[in-house]
C-alpha cells in the first residue's frame, strides 16, 4: 500500500488554487495504487479554514505544521520539515506544485533523499503498478514519458494542466506546533515586495490576457488591464519577450521559452505574432484566442478562435461586451 503526500503552499495566508490540484492528483494517484493520500501545509500562524479546496480534496489527513519561521519561504526550514514528514510517514510518493517555491523545495528534497525528480508534470498514469509521468521538454515542443527508478517518487505538478474530478471527502485536520532547530538555516529573509496582490501571477492564472508589440507602447496596457479586470479575479497578465525587452512590462509576465510556461484554461494573445519561442510557452493552454490585424500571423495556426482586426478597436469592444455580460449576471 503506497502512501502519497501532497505538500501545499499558501499565498497571503490562503491556500493557492494549485494546492487544491496537488491534493486532487495525490488522492487520485493513491486510489490507483490502492493507498491513501495525506497533505502537509507548513505555515506561519494558527490555522483557519481552508475552504472548499480542502473540504473536497479527497485526502485522508491534512497536517498543518505551524511555526513562525514558516511564515515565508526559507528553503532550509521547509526542506527540513518536509524531509522529516516524508521519512517518518513512509511516503512512497510526494507531490508539490510547480511554482518557484515548489520547484526549489522539490529539488532540495530530492537531493536530501537521494532520488531523481520530475518537475512540471502534466499527466501521470499507473499501469502494472508502475507510475509513468508525462512532462513537456524543449518548452513544450515535445513531451517526455518517463519513469523514476527510485522511492519515494517526487514530482511537481504544473498548474491547471490536469483535468480533475472534484474530490469527495473532507480530511481529518491536525494542527501541530512545529519544534524546529534553527541551526543550519542559512537563508535570512529580508523583505518581500509584493506586486499587485489583486492580479494573479501569469503562471497561476486561470485566464491570461497577453500583449505583444502590437500594443505600440506601455501606455496602452490599460486596454489589457481593462479586459483582464472584466474577466474577473482569476485573470492575469502576460507579455511577449519583445515588450519585456523593450522595458514595457516586467520579466515576471513574459510567456515563452525564456519566460513562464503557462497552461491557463483560456489564453488571449493580443498583438502577438506567435514566434516559436512564444508558442512554446502557451501551446498547452486550454483554449487560445488570437487578436491580430495580420491574417497570416503564425499565432492563428494554433489559436482556437481568431479575430482579424485592429486591437485598438477589438479589445475595447470585447471588454464592453464582457462587462455587459457580467452586469446581466
Amino acid at each position: 500500500m503506497t502512501k502519497v503526500l501532497a505538500v501545499l503552499e499558501e499565498r497571503e495566508g490562503w491556500l493557492t488554487e494549485v494546492a487544491g490540484e496537488v491534493m486532487a492528483v495525490a488522492a487520485g494517484l493513491a486510489e490507483d495504487l490502492g493507498g491513501s493520500a495525506d497533505a502537509l501545509l507548513p505555515r506561519g500562524e494558527a490555522w483557519r479554514d481552508g475552504g472548499e479546496g480542502v473540504e473536497r480534496s479527497g485526502v485522508r489527513r491534512l497536517t498543518v505544521l505551524v511555526h513562525e519561521a514558516l511564515a515565508s519561504y526559507r528553503p532550509e526550514v521547509f526542506t527540513a520539515v518536509v524531509e522529516s514528514a516524508v521519512r517518518e510517514g513512509g511516503y512512497g510518493a510526494v507531490l508539490l506544485a510547480a511554482t518557484s517555491q515548489g520547484k526549489d523545495l522539490a529539488a532540495r528534497l530530492a537531493a536530501r533523499l537521494d532520488v531523481p525528480l520530475a518537475q512540471e508534470i502534466v499527466d501521470l498514469a499507473v499501469s502494472g503498478g508502475e507510475i509513468e509521468l508525462v512532462r513537456p521538454v524543449y518548452a513544450g515542443k515535445a513531451l517526455a514519458r518517463i519513469h523514476l527508478d527510485s522511492s519515494p517518487l517526487i514530482a511537481t505538478i504544473r498548474p491547471h494542466a490536469f483535468s480533475l474530478e472534484p474530490g469527495k471527502s473532507a480530511p481529518e485536520i491536525e494542527v501541530v506546533e512545529a519544534d524546529l532547530d534553527p541551526s543550519g538555516w542559512a537563508t535570512e529573509v529580508l523583505a518581500f515586495e509584493a506586486s499587485d496582490p489583486e492580479v494573479p501571477d501569469v503562471a497561476e492564472a486561470a485566464v491570461v490576457v497577453s500583449g505583444g508589440r502590437g500594443l505600440k507602447g506601455p501606455e496602452n496596457w490599460d486596454l489589457l488591464e481593462g479586459l483582464r479586470a472584466a474577466l474577473g479575479g482569476d485573470a492575469g497578465l502576460g507579455a511577449s519577450r519583445a515588450v519585456v525587452d523593450a522595458g514595457w512590462r516586467p520579466h515576471a509576465e513574459q510567456v515563452g521559452q525564456t519566460g513562464q510556461t503557462v497552461a491557463p484554461r483560456l489564453y488571449f494573445a493580443i498583438g502577438i505574432s506567435g514566434a516559436v519561442q512564444h508558442l512554446a510557452g502557451m501551446r498547452t493552454a486550454g483554449k487560445i484566442v488570437a487578436i491580430n490585424r495580420d491574417a497570416d500571423a503564425p499565432i492563428f495556426k494554433i489559436a482556437d478562435y481568431g479575430i482579424v482586426g485592429d486591437l485598438f478597436e477589438v479589445v475595447p469592444a470585447l471588454t464592453r461586451e464582457i462587462e455587459a455580460l457580467r452586469a446581466r449576471g
Binding site: 487560445i288 492563428f300 478562435y305 481568431g306 479575430i307 482579424v308 482586426g309 485592429d310 478597436e313 477589438v314
Partner: peptide, 15 residues
C-alpha cells in the same frame, strides 16, 4: 482554429 470574423463586429460571436 476558427476565424470568428474581422474587427469589432466579430466580438459578440466570440463572447
Amino acid at each position: 482554429g476558427e476565424f470568428i470574423g474581422e474587427g469589432a463586429g466579430a466580438v459578440p460571436e466570440l463572447v
